[in-house]
Write a protein that binds this DNA or RNA. Structure first.
Length: 280
DNA sequence: CGATCTACCTGATGGC
DNA sequence: TGCCATCAGGTAGATC
């Protein structure tokens, strides 16, 4: 579900809602969610009594800095949600609530995840670099880390892969997933299957600018919620960027530029939407 | 090296 | 109403 704009929206919500709060108790029901820890005990003990100092984001990972020096890492997978609650009963906990942090002030932070592809774990900042390969090997952040066009061009030329898989490869660029890679490629006027080392300097700049523009707009509208409305922000509200999607989930609808019907294609098992006329 | 498949899960939806 | 196939925002690992 959640890609960079959705995770960034939740990060900003947490900054407002969770920072400064002390974790009084920790309840874990789904042990698959904390699978990096062998047992519940170390996870619960390392969190209990700590205070949340700040919230960072790396790609699609949320990093909650704790006053113990540890970091609470959250990845939402396909169906994860982080939800703020007034107390243990309000609102009533959803099915598939796997981890609940109760603050000393009475509120709660709940991790809900039906498909259990998401995960939560506690670690140290040092171990993040050395022992958590997915995080250590993340590429540059698609939104936060400014990269020069020259460097971006060099990065594209260093690979000989198709553009969409490249944009979605977290080791290269961190944060883009299936929705936003399609939206960025449409905005840039480039096909998903263009090989990355065939782009002209102008196309490289268009791609870079499209990535920045699409992500900025998506964050402004608090992310995308699809038909199932599974993506929710910290307060349970849906996002609004789906109304601005140009191609994603719009098979057969007219392209906003040329009015030709948009195409859907399976690429690497994932649905890919594009305009066969505008994207070259 | 890159491309392609599988597995990990639950739930919604549509065809018959 | 039920049954079955297909689909869904992610990622890692195996295989060719």
């Amino acid at each position: 579900m959640p890609e960079l704009p959705e995770v960034e929206t939740i990060r900003r919500d947490l900054e407002r809602e969770a920072v400064g709060k002390k974790i009084k108790t920790v309840d874990v029901t789904g042990t698959r969610t904390i699978r990096r820890h062998k047992t519940k005990k170390p996870f619960v003990e390392r969190l209990t009594g700590t205070k949340i100092l700040g919230v960072d984001r790396k790609g699609k990972y949320l990093l909650l800095r704790l006053d113990s020096g540890d970091v609470l890492v959250v990845h939402l997978g396909m169906s994860g949600q982080l939800l703020a609650a007034k107390n243990a009963k309000t609102p009533p906990p959803l099915k598939h609530t796997h981890v609940v942090l109760s603050y000393s002030t009475g509120g709660q932070l709940r991790f809900v995840d039906p498909r259990t592809f998401g995960e939560v774990f506690v670690t140290t900042p040092e171990a993040l670099e050395s022992e958590v390969p997915e995080l250590a090997h993340l590429g540059f952040d698609a939104y936060e880390q400014v990269m020069s066009w020259v460097d971006f061009a060099r990065l594209l030329r260093s690979k000989r892969t198709k553009l969409k898989p490249l944009l979605m490869d977290q080791k290269v660029i961190a944060g883009l997933g299936n929705i936003y890679s399609d939206e960025v490629l449409f905005e840039a006027g480039l096909r998903h299957d263009r090989t990355s080392d065939t782009l002209t300097a102008q196309e490289v700049r268009r791609l870079y600018r499209a990535m920045m523009d699409v992500l900025q707009e998506a964050i402004k509208h608090r992310g995308s919620s699809l038909a199932d409305e599974q993506y929710r922000d910290l307060f349970g509200e849906v996002g609004g960027f789906q109304a601005f999607h140009r191609v994603y989930d719009r098979e057969g609808q007219p392209c906003v530029r040329c009015r030709n019907p948009l195409v859907r294609e399976k690429v690497g098992g994932r649905s890919t939407f594009y305009c066969a006329h505008c994207q070259v």
